[in-house]
Design a protein around this nucleic acid. Structure first.
Lengths: 214, 214
DNA sequence: GTCTATACGTCGATAGAC
DNA sequence: GTCTATCGACGTATAGAC
């Protein structure tokens, strides 16, 4: 929805505030990486601080603790994924939905240049924490709703533009597409051969009510 | 593949061995519950032992540690889910696939009489550990392959019996059905209203290549 | 705002009695 | 095989200097 900004926070420029802002970003990035690869409870606050080039003192000053860091990470995660999804939808070739689906599937299965291959791991880690407690649960539920809406509306717009009638409401379409991408990427992670790229593309087309040709 | 046996272990009957066998079962059950609800790293070995009515000494004697307990749990989990899935497939009404799908979906979303509503939680917890390390990863990958095969072959048999041609190979069908059930149940857990029961049933039918009526 | 040092609790794992 | 007691290591969180 919004234009991407170059580094991080738009306001304030004093060197002191810049260091503060950079500490926040570095700690959150380190947390995203470590929480994804090892799990929240398996990583110590000191390990995160060290990976970020800071100490636990800075961590507690910014986030009040490991739990606070997780919440802050969730907010950043929501923004990032939302922006990337929007960009992907906007950049899709309106004529060929397969290109669209292929890009989405690739973003889930191929290693991300910045976050490595831990995208799906962090997603699942966050989901587990959400399913276990309402504090994170409510926020992640809201995020999933937004993703469904973005996905559904984007596909509805595309369907309208190309004159292809969608088989379901945008909300239901979003839920189905997200579900298929999620469920298949989890299987793909454990056994890539079991989930060929073509199967995913074709299945998404089928679910949308398109012809099952390509 | 095998006939289900009544309680636990078929061999040995001396009271000493019975206590040993019961300790194993109680510890594994307690681990399944606690690992699912709180997460492996968030639960101490002592907490598991206490919930099982034993002490850490017994735990270490049986499994060598918390990691060993997790591996043993995975094996039991594999057997249980495999048996339940087989029973569900065998018990399905051959005439109506919707009943079939509805039962599967219900088993994922409705609280289990024995394991409460932590089925999906434990499944995801195990998946995360599998994605993070080959030790559990290989075993869980093998289990998913078995589930896909069971699911795919079961549906292929049904399709053959009713004269309905399946749109895909059994392997691909299994992957798709499992993926849809997984991805949608995860969304359902956070926001039940976003995933109506009817949507799941209908989507599974569509993916199998059946008419999209009911 | 960030670092160093540290208090205090908890965890995993073991030793030895029964 | 199971329990009690315990050790060493590590984790969270805080206090005070800069």
């Amino acid at each position: 929805m919004e234009s991407s900004r170059t580094p991080e926070h738009p306001r304030r420029r004093t060197p002191q505030a810049q260091r503060k802002s950079e500490s926040r970003a570095r700690l959150i990035d380190a947390a995203a990486d470590l929480f994804a690869r090892k799990g929240f409870h398996a990583v110590s606050a000191e390990a995160v601080a060290e990976a970020a080039g800071r100490t636990t003192g800075a961590l507690y000053s910014h986030f009040g603790g490991k739990e606070g860091l997780l919440l802050a990470l969730l907010e950043v995660w929501k923004e990032r994924t939302s922006e990337e999804l929007a960009a992907e939808i906007a950049a899709g070739d309106p004529a060929d939905p397969a290109v669209h689906f292929s890009a989405m599937w690739g973003s889930l299965t191929r290693p991300h240049p910045e976050h490595g291959d831990s995208w799906l791991l962090l997603e699942t880690e966050l989901w587990l924490h959400a399913a276990r407690g309402p504090l994170i649960g409510d926020r992640l539920a809201q995020r999933y709703t937004e993703i469904r809406a973005q996905l559904g509306e984007g596909l509805a717009d595309w369907a309208k533009a190309t004159g292809t009638p969608l088989a379901r409401t945008p909300e239901e379409t979003g839920a189905l597409v997200l579900g298929i991408l999620l469920g298949l990427s989890m299987q793909h992670r454990l056994e890539p051969r079991a989930v060929p790229d073509g199967l995913v593309i074709e299945a998404l087309g089928t679910v949308l009510g398109l012809g099952r040709s390509a």
